[in-house]
Amino acid sequence: MKLLIGQILPYITVTLFTLGVLYRLGRWVGPRIVHNITLSPWPKTNTEVAIRVGSEAFLFRNLFRFDKALWFGAIMMHLALLNIIGGHVVGFGFLGEQFALIPGLGISPELSTEMSDMLGTVFGILLFVALLYLLFRRLTLTPVKLVSKPSDNLWLIYLIVLVGVGNIMRLFHDFGVGYEQVRDYIVALALFQPVTHMELLNNGFFLTHYLLVQILLIVFPYSKLMHLFGMFAERWIVNRVYKDPAPGMPNIDVAAARRAGIGIPSDDAAEEGV
């Protein structure tokens, strides 16, 4: 088990994830944008495109405009997830002392570790609650229930379990792992050194959490999670710069036409018309 999940599977996961995503993106690049289907009102410059797409990607503009409750749940979930992924990287990378590295703030390494612990705990719980809310929404709101497939609910449950195990490790120190253990493990993996002897891999919670993450990454390219990239691919099609052709018709002089009285019948013509 330790050998499989800790030593062998990670390499397979990284390979399958990378190839899978590339395969999927390749499938999107082959077909072309045949007709111009940009949504109006159009952005007029690339800066406007960036603002539009950025506000959708990072602030969920449309959800905010049309469904505040969904916006709240979605942004909480994604914001917490983003921080947790970032936290995993810098937390393990700098052993929780990353905030001490920011010059001018005077944060001690001890304080930084405490801040790391606290932020991880807060975002972990937030993510867990937000996922529960999204699942609750999927199971109770009629229109959402009507569009859901079994896999939509299963993904949420899967994430709830994954995050739940992570939270147990964070909240109960007996079940947790140290920053240093994880860093040493990752370094060893990256250097293709044996890792099976490591203390870390004796922790059942860690193994479970780690296995769930790896399965998720392997399935990722074939799942709805691809919306991470799909969102940008779709926006690239429907939010593009478009410039209207200049208005104005050839050989038009309205003032001259009005002076000449075009369309106003002369007296004779007026009589004929009656």
Binding site: F66, K149, G230, I237
Partner: peptide
Amino acid sequence: KFRSFVVAMESCVKCGQ
């Protein structure tokens, strides 16, 4: 041929909005 179609097929998360 149509990317607009493929991306629509593969990106929906069924949020229901």
